[in-house]
Design a protein around this nucleic acid. Structure first.
Length: 648
RNA sequence: GCCGGUAUAGCUCAGCUGGUAGAGCAACUGAUUUGUAAUCAGUGGGUCGGGGGUUCAAGUCCCUCUGCCGGCACCA
């Protein structure tokens, strides 16, 4: 038997027989390590304790102290334990896949009857039994034909399909948790007793298509979360409770920002407070755009289908458009129009008016464009995903050579705005060609290459999002997250060689000939609706002072203060601060509580003392202590705070 | 759009196996002039999401439509 050399993290190397497993290595170090070990890293790969090592390697033995490996194994083994529990309770359930997720795992099942919320408790109890039984985990590599035959015999068609999808040269691993067996790439724990039985919770059931394919039957997905110990689980559940308090749908009501109702699903009724946030943000964006070299335009809402046919939307996007049929009495046929789902075709119409010269490029055309899209009902989500919304949209008409410069310029532009609005970090995703698309592969090659090069040149790190581009071109997505960590695309930059062609946009070049411009579709906020939703959740309703709808409430302690309070409010309003008086016959405690719940950033309390001394007592949201300040001082302080960051 | 859940007063929720609606907060009225997260008392308010059905009787059971919630799919 040949020997191999295994090098430990401390640099020491030892000889072992070839085919030694990490379990044996751990055992050889100490019996307690042998027991505590959960997995290993072999040349950086996460390695099951039972997998043999055939050649010299770097090795590290992992225990529950190693956070990353421990969590992966805990979640992955819980997935198997849950699947086992489900099949023990309902033997006719077919198993599919059960991967680890960010905070836990899910497992998709095929079963006639739906899982009920009550079933989750039963499954949890059974899972705890399996953990308590300390079922050993064992593994074998099987021959492909044997594995397929095995699952065909068991009546597990999804597993057969999975095996068929495994690459030819990859091993087909079988795992057993006690008697229960599953196809799995591993690694896994030594036995189920290593799982923390008090640190997991089943979170719910939902539907999910097999391999995300809508043409396949829908499976039932049971989701769970798991952590290293009970405290970590409790911390996560607390986090979820706190996140629920930051939910923009809840804060929207509590802060009286907006509402939505059944008669207009996916559309927002903005209340005065919410509209104040919206218009403040819009004013800010308008100043930014002017400074950034954009011209602002405005285009029609209802546009004849002919334009959508020309742009390609009729073909590629029709099911997402609100169609408007107008029945004119004397017309030969019905006029068919559509509410615009995007602004781009209209912007090209403006570009096409009169001759454009290469000297006009880049032409940056912006619009706060109201769009309507018939989004699938299941996609609607508060004001984050709606059917009627306004984009801070712009199209940059430029030459191919200008793409890189414009992209870099845009990324700087966006980053500065996000910073102003309180977002320090954001994700960037690069989405390339989707299956359903316009334009030739040549054009796509060119677009993807140009955008990628420009992004790299701008020093922007991005992750690849394969096949997620728009139908007319690749895109960069600037992604922000909501209170519970869901990603939302806000900003975007999309290269488009297709639309200028389809709508015949041209400019006269230096050579006197006609040329085709490139269009860059871009948005910073994405839509005001979504962005304000994110803004609310990001700040937990405590919007930056300059954006807060009600910035100051001046509250009376005694009614003799009313006249002075009116004066204070008038002074503040004159200084450009959104201030109002609260003269109700209520205790100051009551008023403080109510305005704190309403997320008013500053409460000024006025009693006898303040009237006499011409001062105010300042209480800031989230702070317990108060401070007495002269009227003149607070007016100048708050005037400065009310100024939007670009005007400082 | 799909799977599951859900819909009771402005808000948060109660209403057991069917017998014709209740609480707290809010609102309104009155008292209280109050010092930093809920002052006290009284009053009003619901065709139980819409439609249909079963039944002597439906908030409760069934069907259906709609909205909402969680995922999937789709996407700013």
């Amino acid at each position: 038997m040949s020997q191999i050399s295994l090098t430990f993290p401390d640099g020491n190397a030892r000889e072992f027989p070839a085919g030694t497993t990490p379990a044996e290595v751990a055992q050889s170090i100490s019996t307690s390590l042998g027991k505590k070990a959960i997995s290993a890293s072999v040349n950086g790969a996460h390695w099951d304790l039972q997998w043999p090592i055939d050649a010299d390697a770097q090795i590290a033995i992992h225990t529950m102290q190693d956070e990353d490996q421990a969590l992966e194994l805990i979640r992955h083994d819980f997935a198997h334990v849950m699947a086992r529990a489900v099949q023990e309770i309902w033997p006719d359930t077919k198993v599919t896949i059960g991967p680890v997720t960010e905070r836990g795992w899910f497992y998709d099942f095929d079963r006639q009857d739906p899982f009920t919320p009550e079933d989750l408790g039963r499954i949890e109890a059974k899972m705890k039994d399996i953990v308590a039984a300390k079922e050993p985990v064992t593994t074998e590599v099987w021959d492909r034909a044997r594995a397929i035959a095995h699952y065909e015999e068991l009546g597990e068609p999804y597993k057969v399909e999975l095996i068929e999808r495994i690459p030819e040269d990859a091993p087909i691993r079988m795992y057993w948790h006690g008697d229960w067996q599953d196809l799995c790439r591993g690694p896994h724990l030594q036995h189920t007793g290593q799982l923390p039985a008090d640190a997991f919770k089943l979170m719910g059931v939902s539907g999910a298509y097999w391999f995300g394919d809508t043409s396949r039957p829908m499976l039932q997905r049971v989701q769970g979360v798991a952590f290293k110990n009970r405290d970590a689980l409790k911390a996560h559940l607390t986090f979820l409770e706190e996140a629920a308090k930051r939910d923009h749908r809840r804060l929207g009501r509590e802060m009286d920002l907006f509402h939505m109702q059944e008669e207009a699903p996916g559309q927002v009724f903005w209340h005065p407070n919410g509209w104040s946030v919206y218009t403040t943000l819009q004013d800010y964006m308008r100043r930014q755009q002017r400074a950034g070299g954009y011209v602002e335009v405005n285009t029609p809402q209802v546009v004849d289908r002919k334009l959508w046919e020309a742009s390609g939307h009729w073909e590629k996007y029709q099911e997402n458009m609100f169609i408007v049929e107008v029945d004119e009495e004397h017309a030969r046929e019905k006029a068919i129009n559509a509410l615009k789902p995007m602004n781009c075709p209209c912007h090209v119409q403006i570009f096409n008016q009169g001759l454009k010269s290469y000297r006009d490029l880049p032409l940056r055309m912006a619009e706060f464009g109201s769009c309507n899209r018939y989004e699938p009902s299941g996609a609607l989500h508060g004001i984050m995903r709606v059917r009627g919304f306004t984009q801070d949209d712009a199209h940059i008409f430029c030459t191919e050579e200008q793409i890189e410069d414009e992209t870099r310029r845009f990324i700087d532009f966006l980053a500065r705005i996000y910073r102003d609005l309180g977002f320090e970090g954001f994700k960037v995703k690069f989405s390339d060609r989707p299956d359903v698309r316009s334009g030739s592969d040549d054009v796509w090659d060119k677009s993807e290459h140009a955008l990628r090069a420009a992004t790299t040149a701008a020093g922007c790190d991005f992750e690849l999002n394969p096949g997620e581009g728009a139908f007319y071109g690749p895109k960069l997505e600037f992604v922000l997250t909501d209170a519970i960590g869901r990603d939302w695309q806000c900003g975007t930059l999309q290269v488009d060689f297709v639309l200028p062609e389809r709508l015949d946009a041209t400019y006269i070049g230096a050579d006197g000939a006609k040329h085709r411009p490139v269009m860059l579709h871009r948005a910073v906020l994405g839509s005001f609706e979504r962005f304000i939703g994110i803004l609310i959740e990001e700040h937990a309703g405590k919007l930056p002072f300059w954006l807060a709808p009600r910035q100051v409430v001046v509250a009376s302690i005694v009614s003799e203060a009313d006249d002075y309070i009116r004066e204070v409010v008038a002074e503040l309003q004159k200084a450009g601060v959104r201030a109002e008086a609260d003269l109700r016959n209520e205790k100051i405690n009551y008023k403080v509580r109510e305005h704190s719940v309403g997320k008013v950033p500053v409460i000024l309390a006025i009693g006898h003392r303040e009237v006499e001394e011409r001062t105010v007592t300042v209480r800031r949201l989230g702070e317990k202590q108060t401070a007495v300040t002269s009227l003149a001082d607070i007016v100048s302080t708050l005037r400065a705070e009310a100024t939007s960051p670009d005007l400082l």
